[in-house]
């Protein structure tokens, strides 16, 4: 199937390569195998979702790709170059917005831009405003962070991650803390922005439906030790509606597999 796919479709270049990455944490005399021999390739412009129960190491993998954490063994390549630390080409969006309360909305979006050389101040402002418009918050340029709702905060965080124009966007359960209605709006927004800006996105979630709605591929993780168990390709036209029937079929299939892996993992543990 994969070979046939490669023959028929003009495959874009590889953007991210995760090679045999392992990571162990030591927490109070306990050792947790967060990741064991995880490998993954992500093509340019691809939207890949990492799904699994909490504690399966998917966030750890995202942090390693971001360069915020180092693997015990194995390595990550971005555009063929080994990742040694955080870089502007790979922006992270966290579950909490992590916006800076001492700056206003524009100041937050400008933060990353100010660290980008070769731009004039006026140009930076223009870029920041462009992205605030893209997420629909152009009227809130001067607002303080505490004045925004949870959904608006995540939109600002999205604009802030997009502003330095990274080629890769790493999203760690960015909609986890939002209410269902706001989340549905953001599913629409993120798909629209992804198509418009052609980013490579790695998206971590424990919500299978969300993963099936957004991803080209869904990678299924199982915990202790954290491993990729199965890979699903979701080939539905975009923009996808989270409530559509076709999507529900994919969701059911992935959920079934997830449950199976979890129960077999539990048997091993016993």
């Amino acid at each position: 199937m994969n070979e046939l796919h490669r023959e028929l479709v003009n495959v874009p270049p590889v953007k991210l390569t995760v090679e045999n990455v392992s990571k162990t944490f030591h927490v109070r005399r306990q050792t947790v195998r967060a990741l064991e021999n995880v490998s993954l390739t992500v093509q340019e412009g691809e939207f890949v979702c990492l799904v699994g129960p909490s504690g399966c190491g998917k966030t750890t993998l995202l942090n390693i790709i971001a360069g915020l954490e180092q693997p015990d063994s194995g390595r990550v390549l971005a555009d063929g170059v080994p990742v040694t630390g955080p870089g502007r080409d790979r922006m992270v969006m966290f579950q909490e917005s992590a916006l800076f309360p001492w700056l206003d909305v524009l100041g937050n979006v400008m933060f990353g831009l100010k660290l980008k050389p070769n731009l004039r101040h006026a140009e930076r402002r223009e870029v920041a405003k462009f992205y605030l418009q893209l997420v629909g918050l152009e009227k809130f340029v001067d607002a303080n962070i505490h004045e925004l709702s949870g959904g608006m905060k995540q939109r600002v965080a999205l604009a802030r991650s997009l502003a330095p124009n990274p080629s890769v966007l790493l999203m760690d359960e960015p909609f986890g803390a939002l209410d269902a209605l706001t989340r549905e709006q953001l599913y629409g927004d993120i798909q629209r922005i992804w198509e418009k800006r052609r980013k490579t996105i790695v998206f971590v979630t424990h919500n299978v439906r969300e993963a099936a709605c957004l991803g080209d591929r869904v990678m299924l993780f199982s915990p202790r030790p954290g491993r990729i168990r199965e890979e699903f390709r979701v080939e539905l036209p975009r923009p996808r509606d989270i409530n559509s029937v076709e999507l529900a079929k994919h969701t059911a299939e992935i959920t079934r597999a997830l449950k199976q892996h979890l129960s077999s993992a539990a048997e091993v543990a016993e």
């Binding site: 360069g67 915020l68 955080p86 966290f94 992590a98 800076f100 001492w102 990353g112």
Partner: peptide, 24 residues
Amino acid sequence: IYIRAARTMGSRRLHTWTRVILPA
């Protein structure tokens, strides 16, 4: 998380201290 976010945006050492840790 402020420091992690700043680091991904390219903030390092002195910049992180003066622009993130001190104002925070």
